[in-house]
Simulated assay, not measured.
Amino acid sequence: MTRLFNSMRDGIGMHIVLIWAGMAYLLIFSAFPLFYNIIMSFQTVDIFSIASFDRPFVGLQNYTAIFANPSFWPILKNTAFFVGISVLMQIVLGFGLALLFAQDFPGSSYMRGLFLAGWIMPGLVTGAIWNWILAGDFGVLNYVLRSLGVISGNIFWLSDPAYSLYSIIIANIWVGIPFNMILLSVGLASIPHDIYEAAELDGAGAFRRFLTITLPLMRTHLAAVVSLGVIFTMQQFDLFAALTQGGPSNSSNVMQYWSWQFSFQTYDISSGSAISVLLIVLVVAVAATYTLSTRSEQIN
């Protein structure tokens, strides 16, 4: 009996240690940088004052300067367009692939694994691949389009302001499709097959079953995928760094890369912090919207 009590006590003690270790990790590597960044957004911080801690408090001056910056609204528009189109197409194509791989056909598991390759690759590697595909002089995309007679001359996808943002959107859609496919495949697998069989016996076709069964039962999963897609897309940085660096003339710049430019190119760290705080507010708003919507559905 004593040995059993001691083993239970040791187990509880280990659980407490693990819990406190997890909390310490979150406090050190998540909470502290977050609050430190928020504090810097209300101060004047540059490359000289970041080490000396001589940082005058300026209130909302950094935020008003960001809003007054002539590049703010075009970049905010680019961010909204980038996030909206990317998430929409990732979900549509990911849902289509999830429906495809929900069918039983030879080689489906291997093909699903191949689609995951694009998601597990590092962002800079993905950027290098798409840099090769979209290159104006020797890119694969231009070669294919010329061979098909779609274009007569090369299109400089990454250096032309008319195409630069669309080029990153295409690359980002390619990156995010496998993630959406996996999450939506889990949701599809949770739908009982008996419902489909009963609807088929009643004469419902494939499209009818999709509208009346699949979509309503996938609503919660779709809401989760939309929320995660918006959060992850708003954090996308590697593709911008690898492909266009926000150019030309901010035509492909977005808020997250603009924040990095302020902090590590012009060394206006306080302005970069203010932009990142605005992004945090947007991400929290998306997460809160998803949480409230799922809670209301559970209550109903």
Rank of each mutant, 00 (worst) to 15 (best):
M8K: 13
M14V: 10
I16W: 12
I16S: 07
V17A: 14
L18N: 11
I19R: 08
W20S: 15
G22E: 03
I28V: 15
I28S: 05
I28Q: 04
S30R: 13
F32A: 02
Y36L: 10
N37I: 01
I39N: 13
I39S: 14
M40V: 04
M40I: 06
S41W: 10
F42G: 15
F42T: 08
T44S: 11
T44A: 14
D46P: 12
D46R: 09
F53Q: 03
D54N: 14
V58Q: 02
G59A: 13
F67Q: 02
F67V: 13
A68L: 09
F72A: 11
K77H: 11
N78A: 08
T79P: 09
T79W: 11
I85H: 11
V87H: 10
Q90L: 03
I91D: 10
V92L: 11
F95R: 05
F95G: 10
L99Y: 05
L100R: 06
L100W: 08
P106I: 00
G107N: 03
S109Y: 10
G113R: 02
L116W: 10
G118W: 12
G118E: 00
W119Y: 15
I120R: 04
I120E: 01
M121P: 07
M121A: 15
V125W: 06
N131G: 15
N131I: 01
F138T: 10
F138G: 05
G139K: 00
L141E: 05
N142V: 00
V144Q: 02
I155C: 02
I155L: 02
L158V: 04
S159I: 02
A162S: 14
S167N: 03
I170P: 09
N172T: 14
W174L: 06
V175L: 01
I177A: 05
P178C: 01
L184D: 02
L184Q: 05
S185D: 05
L188P: 09
I191E: 04
H193I: 01
D194A: 14
D194T: 15
A198I: 15
E200F: 08
E200W: 07
E200G: 12
A204S: 12
F210M: 03
I213E: 00
T214I: 01
L215I: 04
M218L: 03
R219A: 15
T220D: 15
A224M: 15
A224E: 06
I231C: 05
I231K: 04
T233F: 12
Q235W: 08
F240T: 11
T244D: 05
Q245N: 14
P248Q: 00
N250T: 13
S252D: 04
Q256N: 14
W258R: 11
Q265V: 12
T266F: 12
D268R: 12
D268M: 09
I269N: 10
S270P: 09
S271W: 08
S273L: 00
I275K: 02
L278S: 01
I280V: 12
V281G: 05
V281P: 06
L282P: 04
V283Y: 01
V283D: 00
V284Y: 10
V284C: 08
A285Y: 11
A285R: 08
V286Q: 01
T289M: 14
Y290W: 12
T291W: 11
L292K: 09
S293K: 13
S296N: 08
